[in-house]
C-alpha cells in the first residue's frame, strides 16, 4: 500500500497544493516507482488519496507519454528521432539500437531488461543524436556509445 509505505512523501506532495487533485501526476510517478508501472491497484490508491474517480486517473495515465499502463523493461531507452536529431543521424541510431537489442521500438526485450522507444524532441538538439536512459540525458550518442550503455546495464544487478 502506497499510503503506509510513503506516508511522509505523500503528505509533502499534498501540502504543495490547495487542491488535492493537483497531486495526481506526482502520485502517479510514485506509483510507477513502487510498482514499475501504473497498476490498477496504484490507480485506485491515487484516486482514493485525491478524491478523483479511478476513471479520471486512468484517463490521465492514458494521456501522458511518461505514464505506462503495462509493465515495461527495467531500463527505459528513449531515442529522439524528431527532426533536429534526425538531421544528425537519429534514424540510423534507432535502426542500430533495434538490431542490437533484437526488438523494435515500442517493444521490451524478452528478459524484461530493456524497453526501446523512439520519442519526440527532448531538448538536446544541440548535442544530437540524443537519448534518455531512465530519463537521464545521454547526448552525442554514437552506435558505440549506445552499445556501451547496453553493456553497462546488462551486468548483473543493473
Amino acid at each position: 500500500m502506497l499510503r503506509e509505505k510513503y506516508e511522509q512523501e505523500i503528505e509533502a506532495i499534498l501540502a504543495r497544493y490547495p487542491v488535492k487533485r493537483s497531486a495526481v501526476l506526482p502520485l502517479l510517478y510514485l506509483v510507477q516507482r513502487e510498482y514499475g508501472y501504473c497498476t490498477e491497484e496504484g490507480i485506485r490508491e491515487v484516486a482514493e488519496i485525491t478524491g478523483v474517480s479511478p476513471t479520471e486517473v486512468r484517463e490521465v495515465v492514458g494521456f501522458y507519454t511518461l505514464f505506462y499502463d503495462h509493465p515495461i523493461g527495467r531500463h527505459l531507452l528513449q531515442i529522439c528521432d524528431d527532426l533536429p536529431c534526425a538531421l544528425r543521424g537519429a534514424d540510423e541510431l534507432v535502426a542500430h539500437a533495434a538490431r542490437r537489442l533484437g526488438i523494435r521500438p515500442g517493444e521490451t526485450t524478452p528478459d524484461g531488461r530493456f524497453t526501446l522507444e523512439t520519442v519526440m524532441c527532448i531538448g538536446a538538439c544541440h548535442r544530437a543524436p540524443a537519448m534518455q536512459v531512465d530519463l537521464e540525458f545521454v547526448e552525442h550518442v554514437t552506435p558505440e556509445v549506445f552499445d556501451r550503455i547496453v553493456e553497462d546495464l546488462s551486468r548483473d544487478g543493473a
Binding site: 504543495r16 493537483s22 501526476l25 506526482p26 502517479l28 510517478y29 494521456f63 501522458y64 507519454t65 511518461l66 505514464f67 519526440m120
Partner: peptide
Amino acid sequence: MAVHLGAGAY
C-alpha cells in the same frame, strides 16, 4: 514556490 513535473505532452 514549488516545482511541478509534467509527464510528457507538448
